[in-house]
Design a protein around this nucleic acid. Structure first.
Ligand SMILES: [Mn+2]
Ligand SMILES: [Mn+2]
Ligand SMILES: [Mn+2]
Ligand SMILES: [Mn+2]
Lengths: 226, 226
DNA sequence: GGGTATTTTTAGCTTCGTCTAATAATATCT
DNA sequence: AGATATTATTAGACGAAGCTAAAAATACCC
């Protein structure tokens, strides 16, 4: 037992599907349309690809019932996520990219670099634990640090929090937050979390107020300060 | 006149064909089998692709007569060559790759990086004029410095020369030369250029002799020292 | 200049990843 | 529960890039 099949590298399409399932499914499963929307692809294309991924043992898939990653699929996805996040860090720190531009470039490069490249890059960067958006970088061994923060949208008024992560990859959103200094590491005082529409009001250390819509506030992860 | 077609990025296959024609054709033209051999692809595949490249205005191609690059094709090829050589330089100088390993990685990365990435990388590297093998790096404007050196196989015995370039991308060959210090920048004394088999004997600054077969000696480019 | 050898092209097939349109299954609502 | 709305799958097609085998063109040789 244990067939040794020549592990030819997976195509970049396959890689992006695996990442999509990983991001969307969490511990559950991802639906056809969710995946289709995420990848800007027709649902029919997703159905077909899930069949192939299942065949390749990367995904568990039951018709009409969504897909989840197998161990191999998860390992593959995390390898890509590691590459992606290390590359983003490199682009920002060494090539002077701005916060909102790193994602697009990393989305292509992640499929072209080798393991060798990835580990040498990690070395050059000093083995960072998080990428520029505060997302944890999986280890070369495939271990991903557990998230210990919570969405700003669920904070309680009156408390000081520190931003740990901005979970959003749309460039205009990142540009907006970046300009205002709402980035990982920043401390904020929660002034109000309005029940009826979820708008959150915060004040930064310079006393500047910011108003954040519900969904946006929920994509900003924070930790309580003492 | 001057149609403005949305310049969608060319596939990596197309890019490699253009580079192959550029390298093989020089100012003349490249034959189907030459290209096929270079790209490790069947001749039939080349014929088909040349048809498409011609259609796209990247290549001039006449059946049974070989192909040469159009201005657009040449510009595209040089853009890739620039990326390739800058990436090789980066891999060696910043990621600690060895001389013989940079080519393979660059061959993939060249298709994944953006112009933005390329120019920022050039900046980081200090706008180098040559890559680790001594090959000139085309400018962002597409200008390529003329080669002013000649093959060691054509040198005259008794002269001192400086290695400017090792025009070979096979890893074992590069490893061999690298170990012996026959790399760009090194000075050598030409001891003998044997007519009958082209073997060249040189001595380096430490007095160590090296014997180089004809083809190998012709892939080492040198300049005369005063 | 005719005959063989080599090179190149054509024809036809394959896989990957995508699409649209039609159909089927599941979910939702009254 | 039945009707309707939503979601997912199937069927069929397509372009890109590759392959093999057969046919055609060109090159070489005496
Ligand atoms: Mn990203
Ligand atoms: Mn990607
Ligand atoms: Mn190279
Ligand atoms: Mn390449």
């Amino acid at each position: 037992m244990g067939e040794f099949v020549a592990a030819q590298p997976l195509s970049s399409s396959i890689g992006d599907y695996l990442k999509a399932v990983w991001e969307l499914a969490g511990s559950g499963s991802a639906s056809t349309t969710e995946i289709a929307t995420r990848l800007s692809v027709a649902p029919a294309s997703v159905t077909k690809m899930l069949g192939r991924l299942q065949e390749a043992g990367l995904v568990r898939y039951e018709r009409y019932r969504g897909a989840s990653l197998t161990e191999r699929g998860r390992a593959e996805a995390l390898r890509l996520v590691r590459r992606h996040r290390l590359i983003e860090t490199f682009l920002l720190e060494h090539l002077g990219y701005s916060w909102q531009d790193v994602h697009e470039e990393a989305e292509r490069l992640e499929h072209a670099v080798s393991d060798n490249f990835t580990e040498r890059l990690a070395e050059l960067l000093g083995h960072p634990a998080r990428d520029p958006h505060g997302a944890p970088i999986p280890g070369a061994d495939g271990v991903l640090a557990a998230e210990d923060s919570f969405p700003l949208g669920e904070a309680t008024a009156g408390r000081w929090v520190r931003v740990t992560r901005v979970h959003n990859e749309e460039a205009p959103v990142l540009a907006y937050l970046g300009e205002r200094g709402i980035v990982p590491g920043r401390s904020l005082e929660v002034k109000e979390v309005r029940g009826l529409d979820g708008v959150v009001t915060v004040e930064d250390e310079e006393g500047v107020s910011h108003f954040l819509g519900g969904p946006l506030a929920c994509s900003i992860f924070v930790r309580l300060l003492p």
